[in-house]
Design a binder for these strands. Structure first.
Length: 882
DNA sequence: ACGCCGGCGTAC
DNA sequence: GACGTACGCCGGCGTA
């Protein structure tokens, strides 16, 4: 038996929102119709998404309400509706009639009074009532079976939801608004009390009356004036805000039942208005309706899915546990990896069919299958299953096949989310939850069932196809031994998290803010009006139009103001402004991207940040880090590097880091077999110094530090396929000089040149680049006839094997090290990877043992023609790791 | 109000 | 046209 659900719609607010949301459109007859169109689509969405059995459209009347007699200023701040909206009110009335939707209007009362009356009078007639409105005033009616729906945000508020948003409960809403006032209705409230103050008072004293009783004990000048001088405003406000609940609605609860069917009269009405696409949509609906009546069970609200939903019972359980491979789709309740819960689970073991398990049974069954070592489970997110096992202290013994990761290995750089894969391999896309309600539990059960069962089925089907593709492309071993084995290591790192000194960030924030304010002030003195220094557009106009400084680079949209431009200007010494802006930019970056952002991501329970280490994003095979990105914490400038003081070891522990020294250049030496380079590494000579000596023709001992920096840039530029143009720009030297360095380099390191050329040729032949471990990156652009596109692909072909091999090496090291730590039952935790560096949080008594494990684990991954050197550092925080 | 993109800057 | 791999902040613009 399906539930009775009433939706009460505040139609006036729909009309205004629709009008302003859509630009003015006209019907063939020249009448403006944008609001009509908007209201129609909002109503259709409401019907399909929330499937009400009953509906009531509450409308305002043209004349004022009793409130205007009480307070002539009521809503006096509202200007008359725009001219183009006026004729649409009547059209919308007609629209509602054609749609056959029950509506109500009553002279002397506003829509709010009708909504309140319906809530109170009909409360017991429905299982559920949804108020579709954005009006905070109506929140007072929220209760056991009454919730409020904000259609713009697609958010539903219940009692707790109101408290979260407003800081007060629904039954305190009237008192709250009486104090705070409501600018949109010109309700004064009590001057001196804001949102926070009102919430605090009501939390302490419960009601406005109670507050008035004890007003003499209130402290603070603002509060005493508010409860003295402005108390009457509060009481007047209250009388305006209170909503009538005894208005005659003109229809009964039973009469609000409706069933929407697009009749011809509606279609003709819409055709006259010129709504072509809406007419097509409704005709489709009519057709679907017709089909359904013929015996189908099509659900209009749910995204279409052809997966048959099987009943999950004891027998089904047996089938699943005995299957060789199952596809699953777990739906979790949040992205907080330490606390999320399971809200649903689908399982598929045959074509076009899935079982669906709701919250009550999903969890235990998921534990059961995850614990079963004989099962192979195909899923799209192995890491989440691991987190779920960790937080519930359950074993994960099953063999997991991660569809997303398999696609990443098979086709790095291509899209790898389940929906794209379903489209690519199964020929049909997947329904997804609305962006505003991304978690299953926020959606209707029928939608959850459709989405989830289809995903489990897709995982089931894709497993075999991707397994075969990996095998076919000789990537299966890489997937199994590297990527799939690394996932539990990463899951553990994320779960561990990095301990943060929150107080440090707070202090640094104040310091930076102060410096930024003073810089802003200093810069504003040079300008007629204040500049938003975070806006490149405003900075450009200021520097080049107002101050008339010489224009350097341009971007697509205007003047370039990036650091190289500002540095050039600063060097010219015409104005102090460019240097000030550079300083502002540096500190502003630190403040917004790191110092303010990171504390917001601290987990309240662990006091740590739990970054996501993504394994299937970077096309070379590197990891990436998000929320927060801990792989780009500053180190180069002093101000930036200080941020690292905020990342600390937990009590009794110490941080230990180990990084590969020059790993990519060592790989270049190994791959190219260039003896000059190899001997430099074997003899322990500083590679940049050696390079400088070669390309500048000076003895190693005479290399200046500026020469070394240039050589360093040449070394790195090479691996990225940098041109003389790029090198010149980077080093601020002439193109001629840059070109000379590159020419000299290739003369002295001739094997490097031929190696890089070979990489391009190989890629041209095979269509892909490949790392030492066999990780492939397919580069169709290598065959492009467009010179720029081809040149890009060539640079990628040169860079990927080097960057990718380094990535594979450290991944293997991580696996070996975690194994070794487990074997020795160490308490040490791996907490971070930054491409060529690993960071551990180590109990002091495990330090010596860990140093050995790290050195062996990292240096021993592969044997090259040059040593793989590892440098280590310890410290109580990340800054001190030296 | 929200989403997307450009500009910019941080890391390796 | 010109340096590879990422992430993420902010402003500004377009769209709903």
């Amino acid at each position: 038996m399906s539930k009775n659900r009433l939706i009460i719609v505040d139609i006036s607010s729909f009309i205004f929102r629709a009008f302003y949301a859509i630009r003015v459109l006209h019907s063939p007859a020249g009448v403006p119709v944008n609001a009509v169109h908007g209201v129609l689509s909002m109503l259709l969405k409401l019907l399909s998404k929330y499937q009400p059995t009953h509906i009531l459209l509450a409308r305002d009347t043209k004349g004022g309400s009793f409130r205007n007699e009480l307070y002539p200023e009521y809503k006096a701040n509202r200007s008359a509706p725009p001219e183009e909206l006026i004729p649409q009110f009547d059209l919308i009335k007609q629209l509602i009639d054609h749609m056959g939707l029950p509506s109500s209007t009553m002279a002397g009362f506003e829509a709010d009074d009708l909504i309140g009356s319906a809530c109170v009078q009909w409360k017991d007639s429905f299982d559920e009532i949804l108020i579709a409105s954005g009006d905070k005033d109506l929140m007072q009616f929220i209760g056991d079976n009454i919730r409020m729906l904000d259609t713009m945000k697609d958010k539903i508020y219940d009692r707790e939801g109101v408290f979260e948003k407003m800081g007060v409960y629904p039954n305190q809403m009237v008192d709250y608004l009486s104090m705070v006032g409501d600018a949109s209705d010109n309700i004064p409230g009590m001057k001196g009390i804001g949102a926070k103050g009102a919430a605090k008072l009501l939390a302490e004293h419960g009601t406005l009356e109670k507050c008035i009783e004890i007003k003499d004990t209130l402290k603070g000048k603002k509060l005493t004036t508010a409860f003295g001088e402005y108390l009457n405003d509060g009481l007047l406000s209250k009388s305006l805000i209170e909503i009538k609940t005894d208005v005659d609605l003109g229809l009964t609860d039973v009469e609000s039942k409706f069933s929407f069917y697009p009749e011809d009269s509606l279609l003709n009405f819409l055709k006259d208005l010129g709504f072509k696409s809406a007419v097509v949509k409704l005709e489709d609906m009519k057709f679907a309706h017709h089909q359904a009546e013929q015996g189908g069970d099509l659900e209009a609200n749910a995204p279409s899915s052809n997966i048959e939903v099987l009943e999950f019972n004891e027998e089904a359980k047996g089938h699943i546990l005995n299957a060789s491979c199952i596809g699953i789709d777990p739906q979790f309740t949040s992205t907080d990896i330490r606390t999320f819960e399971l809200s649903a689970l689908s399982v598929s073991i045959e074509n076009n069919k899935s079982y669906f398990l709701d919250e009550s049974i999903a969890k235990n069954f998921l534990f059961e299958i995850l614990g079963n070592e004989k099962l192979t489970i195909a899923t799209s997110d192995y890491k989440s299953l691991l987190h779920f096992s960790f937080s519930n202290e359950q074993d994960l013994n099953a063999n997991i096949f991660d569809i997303t990761q398999a696609q990443f290995v098979a086709n790095a750089g291509e899209r790898n989310n389940l929906a794209s894969l379903s489209e690519k391999y199964l020929g049909s896309g997947l329904a997804v939850f609305d962006k505003k309600t991304p978690f299953a539990f926020e959606n209707e059960l029928s939608i959850v069932t459709n989405v989830s069962t289809a995903r489990a089925h897709a995982n089931y089907r894709l497993k075999e196809m991707l397994f075969d593709e990996l095998k076919e492309k000789e990537l299966l071993t890489l997937y199994e031994e590297v990527d799939n084995t690394l996932t539990p290591v990463l899951a553990k790192m994320e779960y561990n998290g990095v301990f943060v000194n929150e107080a440090f960030f707070k202090e640094y924030e104040l310091e930076l803010q102060k410096k930024l304010d003073s810089l802003q002030e200093k810069i504003d003195k040079h300008s007629l009006e204040p500049i938003n220094l975070n806006s490149p557009k405003q900075v450009g106009a200021f520097l080049f139009d107002e101050l008339g400084l010489p224009v350097g680079k341009k971007t697509k949209t205007g003047y370039s103001t990036d650091s190289s431009v500002l540095e050039d200007l600063a060097a010219k010494n015409i104005s102090e402004v460019p240097a000030l802006i550079l300083e502002y930019r540096e500190l502003g970056k630190l403040l917004s991207t790191y110092v303010k952002a990171i504390p917001q991501l601290i987990n309240g329970t662990t006091k740590r940040v739990h970054t996501h280490l993504n394994q299937n994003i970077a096309a070379t095979g590197r990891l990436s880090s998000t929320n927060p990105n801990l792989q780009n914490i500053p180190i180069r400038t002093e101000n930036g590097r200080r941020i690292r003081k905020g990342f600390i070891a937990g009590p009794g522990n110490i941080l230990l880091s180990a990084d590969y020294s020059q790993v990519e250049l060592r790989l270049l030496a190994h791959f190219s077999k260039d003896q000059t380079m190899i001997s430099a590494f074997n003899d322990g000579i500083d590679i940049h110094r050696r390079t400088a000596s070669e390309i500048m023709n000076v003895p190693v001992e005479n290399v200046e530090s500026s020469d070394r920096s240039k050589a360093k840039a040449v070394n790195f530029g090479l691996m990225y396929g940098q041109s003389s143009f790029g090198l010149a720009a980077a080093l601020k030297i002439s193109r001629k000089e840059a070109k000379e360095y590159i020419t000299n380099y290739f003369e002295r390191f001739s094997r490097v040149k031929s190696y890089l050329d070979e990489l391009k040729e190989e890629c041209e032949k095979s269509g892909y680049s490949v790392t030492m471990m066999g990780r492939k990156r397919f580069l169709p652009d290598i065959h492009s006839t467009n010179r720029t596109v081809k040149a890009n692909a060539e640079r990628v072909a040169v860079n990927s094997p080097i960057q990718g091999t380094a990535a594979d090496i450290i991944k293997r090291a991580m696996i070996n090290i975690q194994n070794e730590m487990d074997k020795n039952q160490l308490k040490t935790q791996m907490i971070l990877q930054v491409h060529d560096e690993l960071i551990f949080e180590v109990p002091e008594d495990e330090l010596d043992q860990m140093k050995i494990i790290l050195k062996d684990g990292m240096e021993g991954v592969v044997t090259l023609d040059v040593p793989l050197d590892v440098d280590m550092g310890i410290g109580v925080n990340w800054f001190d790791l030296k």
